[in-house]
Amino acid sequence: MTPQTVLTNANLVLEDQVLHGTIVIEDGVITDIDAGAVAHGEDMDGDYVVPGLIELHTDHLEQHFAPRPGVRWPLTAAIQAHDSQIAASGITTVFDCLRLGSDEDGGFEKGEMRAMSGAIQEAQREGRLRAEHRIHLRCEVSAADVMDHFSEFEDDEAVGLISLMDHAPGQRQFQTLDQYELYYKTKRGLSDEEFRAFVERRQMQSAIYSDKHRHALAAICAARGIAIASHDDATLDHVEEAKQFNVTVAEFPTSMTAAKASHDAGMGVLMGAPNVVRGKSHSGNIAARELAREGVLDVLSSDYVPFSLVYAPFVLAEEIDHIDLPDAIAMVTANPARQVGLDDRGRLAPGLRADLVRVGRQDTIPVVRQVWREGRRVA
Protein backbone atom coordinates (compact mmCIF):
# COMPACT_ATOMS: atom_id res chain seq x y z
CA MET A 1 0.00 0.00 0.00
CA THR A 2 1.36 3.40 -0.99
CA PRO A 3 2.05 5.58 2.07
CA GLN A 4 0.04 8.76 2.42
CA THR A 5 1.54 12.22 2.17
CA VAL A 6 -0.08 14.59 4.66
CA LEU A 7 0.51 18.35 4.45
CA THR A 8 -0.88 20.20 7.45
CA ASN A 9 -1.02 23.69 8.95
CA ALA A 10 -1.39 25.06 5.43
CA ASN A 11 -3.46 27.86 3.96
CA LEU A 12 -5.12 25.88 1.17
CA VAL A 13 -6.24 28.02 -1.77
CA LEU A 14 -9.48 26.38 -2.87
CA GLU A 15 -11.80 27.57 -5.63
CA ASP A 16 -13.91 29.78 -3.37
CA GLN A 17 -11.92 30.29 -0.19
CA VAL A 18 -8.59 30.06 1.57
CA LEU A 19 -8.94 27.26 4.13
CA HIS A 20 -6.50 26.75 6.99
CA GLY A 21 -6.24 22.99 7.01
CA THR A 22 -4.76 19.70 5.91
CA ILE A 23 -4.50 17.97 2.53
CA VAL A 24 -3.90 14.25 2.05
CA ILE A 25 -2.27 12.64 -1.01
CA GLU A 26 -2.17 8.98 -2.00
CA ASP A 27 -1.14 7.32 -5.28
CA GLY A 28 -0.59 10.72 -6.90
CA VAL A 29 -4.13 11.90 -6.17
CA ILE A 30 -5.69 14.20 -3.58
CA THR A 31 -7.77 11.99 -1.31
CA ASP A 32 -8.91 14.34 1.46
CA ILE A 33 -9.05 18.00 2.49
CA ASP A 34 -10.01 19.01 6.04
CA ALA A 35 -10.07 22.18 8.08
CA GLY A 36 -7.55 22.53 10.89
CA ALA A 37 -4.14 21.04 11.55
CA VAL A 38 -3.26 17.50 12.61
CA ALA A 39 -0.45 16.17 14.79
CA HIS A 40 1.08 14.00 12.06
CA GLY A 41 2.16 15.04 8.61
CA GLU A 42 4.50 17.70 7.23
CA ASP A 43 4.03 21.12 8.79
CA MET A 44 3.54 23.82 6.12
CA ASP A 45 4.08 26.50 8.78
CA GLY A 46 1.07 28.48 7.57
CA ASP A 47 2.32 28.79 3.97
CA TYR A 48 -0.11 28.76 1.07
CA VAL A 49 -0.66 25.51 -0.80
CA VAL A 50 -2.04 26.11 -4.30
CA PRO A 51 -2.70 23.83 -7.27
CA GLY A 52 0.23 23.25 -9.60
CA LEU A 53 0.41 26.13 -12.07
CA ILE A 54 -0.56 25.52 -15.70
CA GLU A 55 1.36 27.41 -18.37
CA LEU A 56 -0.22 27.67 -21.83
CA HIS A 57 2.21 30.00 -23.60
CA THR A 58 5.91 30.30 -22.87
CA ASP A 59 8.74 31.23 -25.23
CA HIS A 60 11.26 30.54 -22.48
CA LEU A 61 12.57 27.32 -24.03
CA GLU A 62 13.81 29.30 -27.05
CA GLN A 63 16.13 31.29 -24.78
CA HIS A 64 17.90 28.07 -23.79
CA PHE A 65 17.95 26.50 -27.27
CA ALA A 66 19.08 29.66 -29.10
CA PRO A 67 20.81 31.74 -26.40
CA ARG A 68 22.72 33.88 -28.94
CA PRO A 69 22.22 34.66 -32.65
CA GLY A 70 23.41 31.66 -34.63
CA VAL A 71 23.98 29.53 -31.51
CA ARG A 72 22.11 26.25 -30.95
CA TRP A 73 22.48 24.57 -27.55
CA PRO A 74 22.18 20.74 -27.29
CA LEU A 75 18.46 19.95 -27.27
CA THR A 76 18.17 17.81 -24.16
CA ALA A 77 20.42 20.11 -22.14
CA ALA A 78 18.34 23.13 -23.21
CA ILE A 79 15.10 21.34 -22.30
CA GLN A 80 16.37 20.32 -18.86
CA ALA A 81 17.57 23.86 -18.09
CA HIS A 82 14.18 25.22 -19.11
CA ASP A 83 12.32 22.54 -17.14
CA SER A 84 14.28 23.22 -13.97
CA GLN A 85 13.30 26.88 -14.00
CA ILE A 86 9.70 26.05 -14.88
CA ALA A 87 9.32 23.60 -11.97
CA ALA A 88 11.09 25.92 -9.53
CA SER A 89 8.46 28.54 -10.42
CA GLY A 90 5.65 26.19 -9.39
CA ILE A 91 4.60 25.21 -12.91
CA THR A 92 3.65 21.53 -13.08
CA THR A 93 2.05 21.49 -16.56
CA VAL A 94 3.64 23.50 -19.36
CA PHE A 95 2.74 23.95 -23.01
CA ASP A 96 6.09 24.68 -24.63
CA CYS A 97 5.77 27.08 -27.57
CA LEU A 98 7.41 25.95 -30.80
CA ARG A 99 7.45 28.47 -33.67
CA LEU A 100 6.38 27.33 -37.12
CA GLY A 101 6.76 29.46 -40.24
CA SER A 102 9.78 31.55 -41.23
CA ASP A 103 9.64 35.30 -41.62
CA GLU A 104 12.20 38.03 -42.01
CA ASP A 105 12.53 38.38 -38.27
CA GLY A 106 14.13 34.96 -38.11
CA GLY A 107 12.45 31.82 -36.85
CA PHE A 108 13.73 28.30 -37.13
CA GLU A 109 14.53 26.05 -40.05
CA LYS A 110 12.22 23.21 -40.98
CA GLY A 111 13.06 20.22 -38.81
CA GLU A 112 14.38 22.16 -35.80
CA MET A 113 11.05 22.35 -33.99
CA ARG A 114 10.24 18.76 -34.94
CA ALA A 115 13.52 17.71 -33.35
CA MET A 116 12.70 19.83 -30.29
CA SER A 117 9.32 18.17 -29.81
CA GLY A 118 10.88 14.73 -30.17
CA ALA A 119 13.57 15.59 -27.63
CA ILE A 120 10.98 16.89 -25.13
CA GLN A 121 8.99 13.68 -25.37
CA GLU A 122 12.11 11.51 -25.10
CA ALA A 123 13.32 13.44 -22.05
CA GLN A 124 9.89 12.96 -20.49
CA ARG A 125 9.95 9.20 -21.13
CA GLU A 126 13.42 9.00 -19.60
CA GLY A 127 12.24 10.72 -16.41
CA ARG A 128 14.50 13.74 -16.90
CA LEU A 129 11.77 16.35 -16.47
CA ARG A 130 10.03 17.66 -13.38
CA ALA A 131 7.00 19.27 -15.01
CA GLU A 132 4.66 17.63 -17.51
CA HIS A 133 5.44 19.05 -20.95
CA ARG A 134 2.98 19.44 -23.82
CA ILE A 135 3.33 21.23 -27.14
CA HIS A 136 1.89 24.56 -28.25
CA LEU A 137 2.52 25.27 -31.93
CA ARG A 138 2.74 29.00 -32.68
CA CYS A 139 1.83 29.15 -36.35
CA GLU A 140 2.78 32.30 -38.27
CA VAL A 141 -0.06 32.14 -40.78
CA SER A 142 1.41 34.89 -42.98
CA ALA A 143 4.53 32.78 -43.65
CA ALA A 144 4.64 30.93 -46.97
CA ASP A 145 6.14 27.80 -45.39
CA VAL A 146 4.00 27.43 -42.24
CA MET A 147 2.00 24.47 -43.58
CA ASP A 148 5.20 22.77 -44.70
CA HIS A 149 6.60 23.15 -41.17
CA PHE A 150 3.29 22.01 -39.66
CA SER A 151 3.29 18.85 -41.76
CA GLU A 152 5.97 17.42 -39.45
CA PHE A 153 3.46 17.49 -36.55
CA GLU A 154 0.47 15.88 -38.22
CA ASP A 155 0.72 12.75 -36.06
CA ASP A 156 2.21 14.29 -32.90
CA GLU A 157 -0.16 13.53 -30.02
CA ALA A 158 1.76 15.87 -27.69
CA VAL A 159 0.32 18.88 -29.54
CA GLY A 160 -2.43 20.27 -27.32
CA LEU A 161 -2.72 23.87 -28.48
CA ILE A 162 -2.19 25.80 -31.70
CA SER A 163 -2.15 29.58 -31.97
CA LEU A 164 -2.91 31.40 -35.22
CA MET A 165 -0.59 34.40 -35.45
CA ASP A 166 -0.03 37.17 -37.99
CA HIS A 167 2.65 39.69 -37.10
CA ALA A 168 2.40 41.70 -40.31
CA PRO A 169 2.37 45.50 -39.77
CA GLY A 170 -0.77 47.59 -39.63
CA GLN A 171 -2.96 45.19 -37.65
CA ARG A 172 -3.22 43.10 -34.49
CA GLN A 173 -0.08 43.53 -32.32
CA PHE A 174 1.23 46.28 -34.59
CA GLN A 175 -1.87 48.31 -35.36
CA THR A 176 0.20 51.39 -36.13
CA LEU A 177 3.43 51.60 -38.10
CA ASP A 178 4.89 53.65 -35.25
CA GLN A 179 4.90 50.53 -33.06
CA TYR A 180 6.24 48.39 -35.88
CA GLU A 181 9.00 50.87 -36.72
CA LEU A 182 10.16 50.97 -33.14
CA TYR A 183 10.13 47.19 -32.89
CA TYR A 184 11.69 46.32 -36.25
CA LYS A 185 13.41 49.28 -37.90
CA THR A 186 15.45 50.18 -34.84
CA LYS A 187 16.05 46.55 -33.88
CA ARG A 188 17.28 45.61 -37.37
CA GLY A 189 19.06 48.87 -38.12
CA LEU A 190 17.14 49.45 -41.38
CA SER A 191 17.24 52.61 -43.46
CA ASP A 192 13.96 54.35 -44.34
CA GLU A 193 13.96 52.76 -47.80
CA GLU A 194 14.82 49.30 -46.47
CA PHE A 195 12.11 49.58 -43.83
CA ARG A 196 9.45 50.56 -46.40
CA ALA A 197 10.38 47.56 -48.55
CA PHE A 198 10.32 45.30 -45.50
CA VAL A 199 6.82 46.49 -44.53
CA GLU A 200 5.53 46.03 -48.08
CA ARG A 201 6.84 42.47 -48.27
CA ARG A 202 5.30 41.51 -44.91
CA GLN A 203 1.94 43.04 -45.81
CA MET A 204 1.94 41.28 -49.18
CA GLN A 205 2.72 37.93 -47.53
CA SER A 206 -0.14 38.45 -45.09
CA ALA A 207 -2.57 39.26 -47.89
CA ILE A 208 -1.57 36.14 -49.84
CA TYR A 209 -1.29 33.54 -47.11
CA SER A 210 -2.98 34.45 -43.81
CA ASP A 211 -6.61 33.69 -44.54
CA LYS A 212 -5.82 30.48 -46.42
CA HIS A 213 -3.55 29.17 -43.67
CA ARG A 214 -5.95 30.10 -40.85
CA HIS A 215 -8.71 28.07 -42.44
CA ALA A 216 -6.46 25.09 -43.17
CA LEU A 217 -5.02 24.94 -39.64
CA ALA A 218 -8.41 25.43 -37.99
CA ALA A 219 -9.84 22.53 -39.98
CA ILE A 220 -7.00 20.26 -38.89
CA CYS A 221 -7.47 21.25 -35.25
CA ALA A 222 -11.18 20.55 -35.44
CA ALA A 223 -10.52 17.09 -36.87
CA ARG A 224 -7.87 16.25 -34.27
CA GLY A 225 -9.53 17.84 -31.24
CA ILE A 226 -6.72 20.36 -30.68
CA ALA A 227 -7.53 23.60 -28.85
CA ILE A 228 -7.05 26.80 -30.86
CA ALA A 229 -5.82 30.18 -29.65
CA SER A 230 -6.26 33.44 -31.50
CA HIS A 231 -3.42 35.92 -31.15
CA ASP A 232 -3.31 39.71 -30.75
CA ASP A 233 -6.96 40.28 -31.67
CA ALA A 234 -7.68 44.00 -31.93
CA THR A 235 -11.14 44.39 -33.49
CA LEU A 236 -14.61 42.89 -33.34
CA ASP A 237 -13.98 41.39 -36.80
CA HIS A 238 -10.98 39.54 -35.37
CA VAL A 239 -13.16 38.16 -32.57
CA GLU A 240 -15.89 37.10 -35.01
CA GLU A 241 -13.23 35.25 -37.00
CA ALA A 242 -12.02 33.56 -33.82
CA LYS A 243 -15.59 32.45 -33.02
CA GLN A 244 -15.86 31.00 -36.53
CA PHE A 245 -12.80 28.84 -35.82
CA ASN A 246 -14.09 27.73 -32.37
CA VAL A 247 -11.18 29.42 -30.60
CA THR A 248 -11.08 28.72 -26.85
CA VAL A 249 -8.15 30.97 -25.85
CA ALA A 250 -7.79 34.62 -26.88
CA GLU A 251 -4.09 35.35 -26.46
CA PHE A 252 -2.96 38.91 -25.78
CA PRO A 253 -5.87 40.96 -27.19
CA THR A 254 -4.57 44.42 -27.97
CA SER A 255 -7.75 46.39 -27.25
CA MET A 256 -10.39 46.44 -24.54
CA THR A 257 -13.06 46.01 -27.23
CA ALA A 258 -11.55 42.73 -28.42
CA ALA A 259 -10.93 41.51 -24.87
CA LYS A 260 -14.52 42.13 -23.76
CA ALA A 261 -15.99 40.53 -26.86
CA SER A 262 -13.73 37.47 -26.51
CA HIS A 263 -14.60 37.06 -22.84
CA ASP A 264 -18.33 37.45 -23.54
CA ALA A 265 -18.03 34.77 -26.24
CA GLY A 266 -16.66 32.30 -23.70
CA MET A 267 -13.03 32.42 -24.74
CA GLY A 268 -10.39 32.51 -22.05
CA VAL A 269 -8.73 35.90 -22.36
CA LEU A 270 -5.01 35.33 -21.80
CA MET A 271 -2.51 38.04 -20.94
CA GLY A 272 1.11 38.02 -19.86
CA ALA A 273 1.96 37.73 -16.19
CA PRO A 274 5.01 39.99 -16.79
CA ASN A 275 2.52 42.62 -18.01
CA VAL A 276 0.73 42.35 -14.64
CA VAL A 277 3.94 42.58 -12.62
CA ARG A 278 5.34 45.50 -14.64
CA GLY A 279 1.99 47.26 -14.92
CA LYS A 280 2.22 47.61 -18.70
CA SER A 281 2.82 45.79 -21.98
CA HIS A 282 6.38 45.63 -23.34
CA SER A 283 5.02 46.43 -26.84
CA GLY A 284 2.86 49.38 -25.78
CA ASN A 285 -0.52 47.64 -26.01
CA ILE A 286 -3.21 47.44 -23.33
CA ALA A 287 -2.20 46.69 -19.74
CA ALA A 288 -3.38 43.39 -18.25
CA ARG A 289 -4.45 45.13 -15.04
CA GLU A 290 -6.95 47.20 -17.04
CA LEU A 291 -8.56 43.98 -18.27
CA ALA A 292 -8.57 42.64 -14.72
CA ARG A 293 -10.34 45.76 -13.44
CA GLU A 294 -13.02 45.29 -16.12
CA GLY A 295 -13.48 41.62 -15.19
CA VAL A 296 -12.36 40.26 -18.57
CA LEU A 297 -8.99 38.71 -17.66
CA ASP A 298 -9.25 34.92 -17.40
CA VAL A 299 -5.81 33.35 -17.87
CA LEU A 300 -2.23 34.41 -17.22
CA SER A 301 0.87 33.20 -19.03
CA SER A 302 4.47 33.61 -17.91
CA ASP A 303 5.40 34.33 -21.56
CA TYR A 304 9.14 35.09 -21.16
CA VAL A 305 9.62 35.04 -17.32
CA PRO A 306 8.58 31.73 -15.68
CA PHE A 307 8.52 33.10 -12.13
CA SER A 308 5.99 35.76 -13.12
CA LEU A 309 3.26 33.10 -13.18
CA VAL A 310 3.35 32.66 -9.39
CA TYR A 311 4.11 36.34 -8.74
CA ALA A 312 1.30 37.98 -10.76
CA PRO A 313 -1.71 36.45 -8.94
CA PHE A 314 -0.56 37.98 -5.66
CA VAL A 315 -0.20 41.35 -7.40
CA LEU A 316 -3.75 41.12 -8.76
CA ALA A 317 -5.20 40.03 -5.41
CA GLU A 318 -3.64 43.08 -3.76
CA GLU A 319 -4.21 45.66 -6.50
CA ILE A 320 -7.71 44.84 -7.83
CA ASP A 321 -10.58 45.28 -5.37
CA HIS A 322 -12.93 42.63 -6.76
CA ILE A 323 -10.24 39.94 -7.25
CA ASP A 324 -9.41 37.81 -4.21
CA LEU A 325 -6.61 35.27 -4.00
CA PRO A 326 -8.72 32.25 -5.11
CA ASP A 327 -9.87 34.26 -8.16
CA ALA A 328 -6.30 35.22 -9.02
CA ILE A 329 -4.86 31.73 -8.50
CA ALA A 330 -7.61 30.32 -10.76
CA MET A 331 -6.09 32.39 -13.61
CA VAL A 332 -2.97 30.22 -13.48
CA THR A 333 -4.60 26.91 -12.54
CA ALA A 334 -8.30 26.07 -13.03
CA ASN A 335 -8.98 28.52 -15.86
CA PRO A 336 -6.15 27.48 -18.21
CA ALA A 337 -6.92 23.82 -17.46
CA ARG A 338 -10.55 24.37 -18.45
CA GLN A 339 -9.70 26.18 -21.70
CA VAL A 340 -7.62 23.28 -23.02
CA GLY A 341 -9.75 20.43 -21.65
CA LEU A 342 -7.55 19.25 -18.75
CA ASP A 343 -10.23 18.25 -16.25
CA ASP A 344 -7.95 16.20 -13.98
CA ARG A 345 -5.96 19.12 -12.54
CA GLY A 346 -5.97 22.83 -11.72
CA ARG A 347 -7.92 22.67 -8.43
CA LEU A 348 -7.46 21.37 -4.91
CA ALA A 349 -10.21 18.76 -4.66
CA PRO A 350 -10.41 15.05 -3.81
CA GLY A 351 -9.97 12.85 -6.88
CA LEU A 352 -7.81 15.32 -8.81
CA ARG A 353 -4.10 15.06 -9.51
CA ALA A 354 -1.88 15.98 -6.59
CA ASP A 355 -0.07 18.78 -8.42
CA LEU A 356 0.69 21.20 -5.58
CA VAL A 357 2.86 24.19 -4.80
CA ARG A 358 3.84 25.46 -1.37
CA VAL A 359 4.22 29.25 -1.51
CA GLY A 360 5.65 31.40 1.26
CA ARG A 361 4.93 35.11 1.56
CA GLN A 362 7.07 37.25 3.85
CA ASP A 363 6.72 40.38 1.72
CA THR A 364 5.30 41.31 -1.67
CA ILE A 365 7.32 38.71 -3.59
CA PRO A 366 6.25 35.07 -3.10
CA VAL A 367 8.73 32.24 -2.51
CA VAL A 368 8.14 28.81 -4.04
CA ARG A 369 9.23 26.44 -1.25
CA GLN A 370 8.09 23.02 -2.51
CA VAL A 371 6.46 21.56 -5.61
CA TRP A 372 4.72 18.19 -6.08
CA ARG A 373 3.65 16.67 -9.38
CA GLU A 374 1.22 13.76 -9.09
CA GLY A 375 2.18 13.51 -5.43
CA ARG A 376 5.92 13.27 -6.07
CA ARG A 377 8.19 16.05 -4.83
CA VAL A 378 9.90 17.63 -7.86
CA ALA A 379 11.22 20.91 -6.43
Results as ranks from 00 to 15, higher is better:
residue 318 E to M: 12
residue 313 P to D: 05
residue 339 Q to E: 13
residue 352 L to P: 01
residue 319 E to Y: 12
residue 311 Y to E: 04
residue 328 A to I: 07
residue 344 D to K: 13
residue 322 H to S: 15
residue 344 D to P: 05
residue 322 H to A: 09
residue 332 V to L: 11
residue 326 P to M: 14
residue 314 F to A: 01
residue 324 D to F: 02
residue 320 I to H: 04
residue 339 Q to H: 14
residue 334 A to G: 01
residue 322 H to R: 13
residue 349 A to P: 01
residue 349 A to K: 05
residue 352 L to V: 07
residue 338 R to M: 06
residue 333 T to C: 12
residue 319 E to M: 11
residue 345 R to M: 08
residue 320 I to D: 07
residue 350 P to D: 10
residue 342 L to N: 03
residue 316 L to S: 04
residue 342 L to R: 14
residue 318 E to W: 15
residue 330 A to T: 12
residue 334 A to L: 04
residue 350 P to S: 08
residue 337 A to T: 03
residue 344 D to V: 07
residue 346 G to Q: 15
residue 332 V to M: 09
residue 316 L to I: 04
residue 354 A to Q: 05
residue 355 D to G: 00
residue 338 R to N: 11
residue 326 P to L: 01
residue 313 P to C: 13
residue 333 T to G: 08
residue 348 L to C: 00
residue 315 V to Y: 02
residue 315 V to G: 04
residue 325 L to Y: 08
residue 355 D to K: 00
residue 321 D to P: 11
residue 325 L to M: 03
residue 336 P to E: 05
residue 352 L to N: 05
residue 317 A to K: 15
residue 342 L to T: 03
residue 355 D to Q: 01
residue 339 Q to G: 07
residue 324 D to W: 06
residue 326 P to W: 12
residue 352 L to Y: 02
residue 318 E to Q: 14
residue 339 Q to V: 15
residue 316 L to K: 06
residue 316 L to C: 03
residue 338 R to P: 02
residue 319 E to I: 13
residue 333 T to Q: 02
residue 338 R to W: 03
residue 354 A to D: 13
residue 341 G to C: 10
residue 312 A to M: 08
residue 313 P to A: 12
residue 333 T to P: 04
residue 324 D to G: 01
residue 323 I to G: 03
residue 347 R to N: 00
residue 345 R to D: 01
residue 328 A to W: 05
residue 351 G to N: 11
residue 332 V to S: 15
residue 331 M to H: 02
residue 345 R to Y: 06
residue 313 P to I: 01
residue 327 D to W: 00
residue 331 M to E: 01
residue 329 I to S: 04
residue 344 D to N: 14
residue 322 H to F: 14
residue 321 D to W: 13
residue 337 A to P: 03
residue 331 M to T: 08
residue 318 E to N: 11
residue 335 N to Y: 10
residue 319 E to A: 15
residue 353 R to H: 04
residue 343 D to S: 13
residue 349 A to Q: 15
residue 321 D to N: 12
residue 346 G to D: 13
residue 350 P to A: 15
residue 314 F to S: 09
residue 317 A to C: 14
residue 323 I to S: 03
residue 349 A to T: 08
residue 330 A to V: 11
residue 354 A to V: 08
residue 347 R to K: 09
residue 342 L to K: 07
residue 340 V to K: 06
residue 327 D to I: 01
residue 313 P to E: 14
residue 324 D to E: 09
residue 347 R to Y: 02
residue 314 F to H: 14
residue 313 P to T: 14
residue 321 D to K: 14
residue 336 P to R: 00
residue 315 V to A: 10
residue 335 N to E: 14
residue 335 N to K: 08
residue 349 A to Y: 00
residue 332 V to P: 13
residue 340 V to D: 00
residue 312 A to W: 03
